[in-house]
Amino acid sequence: METVRSWRRLNGMEIKSPIEDEIESVLAAETGDGNALKVCIGTDSQKKGKIVEFATVIVFLRKGKGGFMYILTDTSHRKMSIKERMLAEVGKSIEVAYSLCHLFTKYGVDMEVHADINTNPAFKSNDALKEAMGYITGMGFSFRAKPHAFASTSCANKIVH
């Protein structure tokens, strides 16, 4: 059983249009204003009792001028191992990246997919590192893991914790 909510901005403003339309209008406005952009997409999750809360973020960085982000939250009532949860996070990020990558290409914006997976083998999340890296790079996307995956480890993390 999945509950899906709509995209919103950090300030809580709900996005009424499809996210693709919203992102295209933002890309047109930002590039029209001369802003050099980079996009980072990441997901984090938190187990809370019998549910898992997920937050996926699209983080826009304006070179030298700050940034902004979009947030999508959803929950799962399915029991998952840590590895399954890490790969579910990656899957959610890839789904968003794949649906928007044509826009980033059209506007010449670099995109990275960030995974909340530790590169240190001492951590349980590391079990999913090879699969996640293969999944993301196999889709043709740039991959970042901890400690360089701020979209998932900092931005999305703040939403689910």
Rank of each mutant, 00 (worst) to 15 (best):
W7S: 09
R8H: 06
R8M: 10
L10M: 06
N11A: 08
G12V: 00
M13Y: 01
M13G: 07
I15W: 03
K16T: 12
S17M: 07
S17R: 12
S17V: 09
P18T: 02
I19S: 09
D21P: 02
D21Q: 14
E22P: 04
E22I: 01
E22C: 10
I23T: 14
E24D: 14
V26S: 12
V26E: 14
V26C: 05
A28W: 00
E30R: 11
D33P: 00
N35R: 11
N35C: 06
N35D: 13
L37E: 11
L37H: 05
K38W: 00
K38G: 11
V39H: 07
V39S: 09
V39Q: 10
C40D: 13
C40S: 14
I41A: 08
G42I: 01
T43S: 08
T43Q: 03
D44Q: 06
S45A: 13
Q46N: 11
K47E: 13
G49P: 07
G49A: 06
G49L: 01
V57Q: 07
V57A: 12
V57L: 04
V57W: 02
I58V: 15
I58R: 10
R62L: 08
R62V: 06
K63A: 13
K63E: 15
G64W: 00
G64P: 09
G66N: 06
G66W: 00
G67V: 00
F68D: 11
F68Y: 12
I71F: 03
L72P: 06
T73H: 03
T73S: 14
T75H: 05
T75R: 12
H77K: 12
H77G: 12
R78L: 09
K79N: 13
K79I: 03
K79G: 05
K83S: 10
R85A: 09
R85F: 01
M86N: 13
M86E: 15
A88Y: 06
A88C: 04
E89N: 15
V90N: 09
K92F: 07
E95A: 14
A97F: 01
A97I: 01
A97H: 02
